[in-house]
Design a binder for these strands. Structure first.
Lengths: 333, 333
DNA sequence: TTGAAAAGGTAAAACGATTTACGTAAATTT
DNA sequence: AAATTTACGTAAATCGTTTTACCTTTTCAA
């Protein structure tokens, strides 16, 4: 069953391919095609169920109506929720999403960018990793809209949408201090991206502002690609050896691992051991007791990203780059 | 910055486009191109960083190296995990994934299939919904590999990979009965797909086999697209009004909503109120007490799906359709 | 020494759309 | 009545590949 081409429609309607193309693309009136012809062709298209071949279209026009989404890991609920929201909004505007996970591998990320490039995606939404600067720079030079989200690459002059991580961790630590906590630990990763360093900075500043000393023994930087088992072992050591009375986790998967450790150790979360997680998750809501968490405004992030993309795609001239920082909220439980 | 074309390479190397094409596609030796020319062209390609335009390639060859993945909702952890695994395995074989969520809307699903079709995806992985039979039939007639997963459409003669839902619910109910539960409730959805009806059937059969009467008041069929708030209200009513001593949830999101309800009601999960969830989730592991759950073999499902796709793509002739049912496991907590 | 086969390569058609530039007849303006 | 404009439409180039069918020269066997 060969699929229909524009030629089949043209033949069936007894007009030229050009005419059919104009009609499909809504340029018929512009090009003064008579109503009668328009009706006839549209009828035939509907009857036969013809759909233009997007590949051919892309080849000719140079754009694809596809937006590439590059994230760390689609199975992380933060990313899958964002992805769902972005997809949904993009779909309403006639754009499709191709997504891929980098798994924090620079090589895979570069590879993905290349694949997207050779598929001529119209725009890129990237949660980047360090080392990707040059590749992204090429995209920008190519005049493709690029929106970074979640993480920023400071060396790169492009659009960024993210949450105010500094403030969020600052407030989290402050809330611990108000509860009278004395030994506040931070469990974070060693990925070198702004979003993570900001979280560390917020932690340090809050301590300093409240006259507490920064103690590097209280900060655990987990290697980003290691097995969960090892992460849990490191945490267990941390929780055992010090008289920590509160811990702030810098990502949701670290918090989940941390809660597993606490459960295993039989250590109760509560008045004498406070926990705050980063990026909300059903686990935190349902945990007994409930776990406080920093909640990023997912809906707003997705909306902003899409807005930025669409405005860039629709404007001929290059727009000014925007850095949009949205507030994150500490959900107390 | 115009991107490079095969012509640029041909000119730079002083050979024809054909020759370059043969070299790119590894047909050089076959077509007896001399080693010297191969080396030279490869060098130029590497130097200039030329990547073939996949769009043009697709237009000519009719395939895209893209696999379309249609699921219910990428933000559901079951699907996002499967997606991640499938993506990963596909990527290793040089295939990319375009995914989209149907949100259980028949219209959106049909729309997605059309989009994928006009983008000439090479194969389809679909978690289908009722009413999609005809559209899928067209794909099959088009000679495209189609693998259904998670849910089957019995009227359709194609490949299917799924878990043994009947057995899993049967065993779950049986385990409740062994614990001495007398009033076992099932909370499921009203989506009319085989996977869900199987789960109901397993529940009924287990009751019958153990001499217990099926009581339809104990079965709650939640409308699939309603607000969580309403779902929770219905569950609360169910949990209140009857002397239920155990509940089996047929999906993970229902179980999560259910746990929220129980928490709100102050009802303890434990000896006098048993809970089993479907599709494992971190929430169930971390809940106090731990929640037992039916765990589908995600890794095997993904692997099987990809295997099936690849073998179909590589064989010229149409292979026999396969129905692969993998065992699901009840994790007791 | 002749003829076939192998070596080394290329020209041009095809994939299915979009778009530019142009053609002809009728209507309108001058 | 001639000139211009408008209405209605089409031919052909183009996007960047792959692939078929062919061409020329060299090698080698009979």
């Amino acid at each position: 069953m060969k699929s229909l081409s524009i030629k089949d429609i043209a033949v069936a309607a007894g007009v030229s391919i050009t005419t059919v193309s104009f009609i499909i693309n809504g340029k018929a009136r512009d090009k003064s095609i008579s109503e009668a012809v328009i009706k006839k062709v549209e009828k035939i298209i509907a009857e036969k169920g013809y759909k233009p071949n997007q590949i051919a279209r892309s080849l000719r026009t140079g754009n694809s109506n596809i937006i590439g989404l590059i994230i760390e890991d689609i199975s992380n609920s933060f990313f899958s929720r964002i992805a769902r929201l972005i997809e949904d909004k993009a779909y309403k505007k006639g754009y499709k999403i191709i997504y891929s996970s980098t798994e924090n591998s620079l090589e895979k990320a570069k590879d993905l960018i290349n694949m997207f490039k050779s598929r001529k995606v119209d725009a890129y939404i990237i949660s980047p990793i360090k080392g990707l600067e040059e590749d992204i720079q090429h995209l920008i030079a190519d005049n493709k809209p690029v929106i970074l989200f979640d993480r920023n690459l400071p060396d790169l002059d492009t659009n960024y949408v993210g949450a105010d991580h500094f403030k969020a961790t600052y407030q989290s630590v402050e809330s611990f201090i108000k509860q009278g906590k004395k030994k506040i630990s931070l469990v974070t990763t060693d990925i070198d991206v702004q979003q993570i360093t900001e979280r560390l900075a917020g932690y340090e500043k809050a301590l300093a502002d409240h006259g507490m000393v920064y103690n590097e023994n209280l900060v655990l930087k987990v290697h980003f690609n290691q097995e969960e088992k090892e992460t849990m072992a490191q945490m267990e050591k941390l929780f055992h050896s010090k008289e920590i009375d509160a811990v702030l986790f810098a990502t949701n998967y670290l918090a989940i691992s941390g809660l597993k450790v606490l459960k295993k150790m039989g250590k109760q979360v509560g008045n004498d051991f406070g926990v705050i997680a980063y990026d909300d998750h059903e686990v935190f809501e349902l945990h007994t007791p409930g776990i406080s968490a920093v909640q990023q405004p997912l809906e707003e992030i997705a909306e902003t990203v899409i807005q930025l993309i669409l405005s860039q795609l629709s404007s001929k001239s290059k727009l000014d780059n925007q850095h949009i920082i949205l507030p994150a909220k500490l959900i107390q439980r």
